[in-house]
Amino acid sequence: MEWMDYVVFSLMGLGILFTVIRLFIGPKLSDRVVSLDTFNMIVIGVIVVLASIFQSNLYLDIAIVYAILAFLETVVFARYLEGKKDDNR
């Protein structure tokens, strides 16, 4: 069943690829923030699957810390965005 891991990783990798494309072409600043949020959520999934493959419990702690940091990052970017006029950047 090893090959199933490759299928899961390629699905998640395609998701990351799409969000990164949106991160680069996104016409507005808020589009970039949205794609960064989605990107972070996918990376949490990647870390958890890696924990399962390496059979190591510690990766789950990394995933917890990453989730907390991702939430903080989203809120900080939202605060930064608030009150600015969002022209094309």
């Binding site: 808020s30 949205v34 959520m41 949490i44 939202a78 965005l81 608030e82 006029k85």
Partner: peptide, 24 residues
Amino acid sequence: IIVFIIISNPIGSSAIAKATYNSK
């Protein structure tokens, strides 16, 4: 992780939506 994600993800997206609206 599940509990944290289910609480934080909607709040984060709501914050982005509000900021998007307020930035015209």
